[in-house]
């Protein structure tokens, strides 16, 4: 096999909402039939597409033959850079500053208000001091579990 130089990315159109199911079935079929499909990607936030990494489009046709929810088998060819952007999406992190008051929207402290002490962007964590009358404590929680409150 020639390896990476010849791998291409083929996007097939599937029913919106059925992407994960289609990808799971394709993965089983690839293993069962020994097709040369190297990876299968369901991009987050984009509905209706499943991306197959393969050398030969024939394998893509074989992998999708007769599958329910596959709407168009003629694949769209994507560049590697485009696929990487889909796989490693830029995540918008709410701008939090120490001293800001936030509401905790998930986890054990859900519903409580807290004051931000420190933000660790690299780890995606935020250290907060809980603003509860009976229960003053600090906690380090994932950044997506807090929501800034209007001051």
């Amino acid at each position: 096999m020639d390896g990476e130089a010849d791998a291409r990315f083929y996007a097939i159109l599937v029913t919106s909402g059925a992407e994960v199911n289609v990808a799971t079935i394709i993965a089983e079929r690839v293993r069962a039939l020994g097709l040369d499909i190297r990876s299968i990607i369901v991009p987050p936030r984009i509905k209706g597409y499943v991306i197959l990494e393969a050398h030969d489009p024939g394998d893509v046709y074989d992998a999708t033959r007769g599958l329910r929810h596959v709407k168009r088998r003629r694949p769209l060819i994507l560049k590697f850079e485009e696929v990487m952007k889909l796989v490693k999406p830029e995540v918008e992190i709410p701008a939090l500053k120490p001293g800001q008051v936030v509401e905790i929207v998930a986890g054990a402290f859900k519903g409580m208000k807290a004051k931000v002490i420190d933000v660790n962007q690299a780890k995606g964590q935020v250290t907060v001091s809980l603003l509860e009358p009976l229960f003053r404590a600090t906690a380090t929680i994932p950044i997506d579990e807090v929501r800034p409150l209007e001051e």
């Binding site: 096999m1 390896g3 990476e4 791998a7 992407e19 994960v20 990808a23 799971t24 993965a27 690839v30 293993r31 040369d36 499909i37 190297r38 990876s39 299968i40 990607i41 369901v42 991009p43 987050p44 936030r45 990494e53 050398h55 590697f80 696929v83 990487m84 796989v87 999406p89």
Partner: peptide
């Protein structure tokens, strides 16, 4: 969760190598 990555053939997959 959202989005799914299945690596079937890690030796030849460009995505797997990159990640």
């Amino acid at each position: 969760w959202s989005g799914m990555l299945v690596v079937v053939d890690p030796e030849n997959s460009v995505i797997a190598r990159e990640l």
